[in-house]
């Protein structure tokens, strides 16, 4: 099982490799266990009833209470569907805008190209919280308060900033000969984007998709002020409200004496984390590749 990836430390045959190796594994494993504790508790608690939660808090209790998940889905299902709709539409738009923008800035030559490019890159470093209040007012003026558009538009207006930055670097790395030969065959710009750039920049797009999806899924402050209608609420705020109502107003501590509320609540948290985990399982390999191949080299 020899590793083919680049070696960080060239192993010299004279060193007592074994101790070093054991030490490294031990350290990583301890860190891993520590980092796994909250996840372990989350999953364990999601299968407990009130009594099990009260008396066997740290261990896995049997029988597993699958019913918690049914109850949880009734509560978080709608929030998740809302978020998935918003994330999907926003993501598709964001990826399209980033792909086109990246292509234009990497492959086309036109006046003011650099100016236009640096105008957006300069804003890569701006924290959006800064314009939070005026942005809120713009959305209110345009009648977007309490609509899904209020969640989708920020993805389209803000997401491509990093997207174009990443895709430009990515597309610049595609060999020019490919485009040249396609042009000789009479391909137009749309063909060049759709038939050549798109298939070759999938890892970059996957990187963007993962980053953006994590962002939308955890987006909290914006839906908190923009969405008042619970039927349209996003998952992060939904979970927050849920925790507050389960603990009768105060999240802090054991204010709730009814221990049966916790199982379904945690089951809801587990369900709410699943889309991110699934996405990462599907796109995770691309995501890492995309990072290696593109943005981080610029």
């Amino acid at each position: 099982m020899s590793s083919t990836t680049s070696t960080q430390v060239a192993p010299s045959t004279r060193r007592p490799l074994r101790y070093y190796q054991i030490g490294s594994h031990l350290f990583i494993t301890v860190m891993l266990l520590l980092s796994f504790i909250p996840t372990y508790l989350l999953i364990t608690w999601s299968f407990k009833n009130g009594l099990q939660y009260r008396w066997e808090r740290w261990a896995i209790s049997f029988p597993l209470r699958w019913r918690n998940y049914v109850a949880a889905w009734d509560i978080v299902g709608d929030y998740m569907i809302n978020t998935l709709i918003v994330a999907f539409i926003g993501l598709m738009g964001m990826l399209l805008l980033s792909l086109i923008g990246g292509y234009v800035f990497a492959r086309m030559d036109f006046p003011f190209r650099e100016t236009l490019y640096y105008a957006i890159i300069a804003l890569l470093m701006v924290p959006w919280v800064l314009s939070f209040i005026p942005a809120y007012m713009v959305y209110v003026r345009l009648g977007l308060l309490n609509t899904r558009w209020a969640m989708i538009i920020p993805e389209l207006a803000g997401g491509p900033i990093f997207g174009i930055f990443l895709m430009r670097a990515f597309i610049a790395g595609i060999p020019e000969e490919l485009f040249e030969s396609a042009r000789c065959d009479g391909a137009g710009v749309l063909d060049l984007i759709g038939r050549i750039t798109l298939p070759l920049s999938l890892p970059g797009l996957a990187t963007l998709a993962v980053l953006n999806f994590i962002g939308v899924w955890n987006s909290f402050l914006w839906p908190l002020v923009m969405i008042q209608d619970d039927a349209k609420q996003m998952i992060a705020v939904g979970l927050y409200k849920l925790a507050r109502s389960a603990t009768y107003g105060g999240v802090a501590g054991w204010t709730s004496q009814d221990f049966s509320v916790w199982g379904p609540l945690y089951a809801g948290y587990v369900i709410a984390s699943l889309p991110l985990v699934l996405l990462f399982i599907v796109l995770g390999k691309f995501y890492v590749e995309g990072l290696v191949d593109s943005g981080l080299k610029v």
Binding site: M31, L32, S35, F36, P38, T39, L42, I214, W217, N218, F220, I235, A236, L239, Y240, A243, Y266, Y269, V270, A272, S273, L276, V277, F280, G284, V288
Partner: peptide, 14 residues
Amino acid sequence: RIAFILPVLTSTVA
């Protein structure tokens, strides 16, 4: 790699 990325994949609120 996957094990250490797991915390990022849980919901912030959760």
